[in-house]
Simulated assay, not measured.
Amino acid sequence: MDNSQKKWGSATLPESSIVFTGLLLTIFGIIFRDSIGITSLLTALGIGLFIGGSVYIAVEGPELVRLTLAFVSLVAFQLVFFGGVVRWIGGIMIGTVIVSTSYSRLSK
């Protein structure tokens, strides 16, 4: 068998380049404004890539746990911008991500 074949589940970009891309999109969306709202979408996409990639890099452990915490952080970040109980749910979810990330880093 040839071991040089790529696995189906392997990432094509390293995580740091995803975070860097998110940072660039966020900066581009903040600096340039348009009347259509495309830069607002680019800013939101950049923030999402930045947060998800940062959480993915910060977590030590299996890939499923890393992806789950990255997804939860994205959802929680959006919920914080709503009001009332939804904001508290988002805050609790962000707290859970922080505690889980800290636990995974300290348990190794």
Rank of each mutant, 00 (worst) to 15 (best):
R87A: 14
G52N: 05
I94Y: 00
K7A: 12
G52Q: 01
P62D: 13
F50A: 03
T68V: 10
V55N: 06
I47D: 04
W88S: 15
I47P: 00
T43Y: 10
K6P: 02
I57M: 15
A76W: 02
T39Q: 08
V65T: 14
F82Q: 12
N3A: 10
F77S: 15
L42M: 15
S10I: 09
S100L: 10
I51C: 01
F50I: 02
I51A: 05
L24A: 11
L23A: 15
N3D: 13
I30A: 09
S16V: 14
R66L: 07
F71Y: 12
S10A: 09
G37N: 05
G90K: 03
T96L: 13
I94N: 06
A44I: 15
E60Y: 07
S107C: 09
I36E: 14
F71N: 07
M93I: 04
I57P: 05
S35D: 15
G91P: 03
G84V: 05
G52T: 04
T39A: 07
G83L: 08
L106K: 10
Y103T: 12
G95R: 01
L45K: 06
T101I: 01
G61P: 00
R105P: 04
R66N: 08
M1D: 07
L64Q: 11
G61S: 05
T43P: 04
I30G: 00
I51E: 00
G53E: 03
